[in-house]
């Protein structure tokens, strides 16, 4: 399984890059599994995901919870809670 991984805002700054193509091992089923695996990839990844309460996820550009199965998704994005719009 190869998947495009995107990071935004301070998650991108902590990881150090905005986008990467990754092939996680077969035992990675859910987004939580994926994050646990990502954290072992570099100190930057580990730091970005140290507080999961501040992480939000989009799978193929749809908001999803942590326990979602990745399935055949092509794109997964990690970012902080959104802060657009007006004050």
């Amino acid at each position: 399984m190869s998947i495009t991984v995107l990071y935004f805002a301070w998650v991108k700054e902590k990881v150090g890059i905005g986008e990467e193509q990754l092939s996680p091992p077969d035992n990675v089923k859910t987004i939580s599994d994926f994050i646990a695996w990502l954290e072992t990839q570099s100190p930057g990844h580990a730091s970005a995901f140290s507080d999961k309460s501040q992480i939000r996820i989009a799978l193929d550009q749809l908001h999803v919870p942590f326990d979602t199965d990745i399935g055949d998704a092509k794109e997964i994005a990690f970012f902080p809670p959104v802060t657009g719009g007006a004050w």
């Binding site: 959104v82 802060t83 657009g84």
Partner: peptide
Amino acid sequence: LKTQAPFWKREHSSTDSSWVVA
């Protein structure tokens, strides 16, 4: 839009800049 649209604000002041917290 405020809670769903994927936008992130970063505010710059004369001395530093920081991400706005939701």
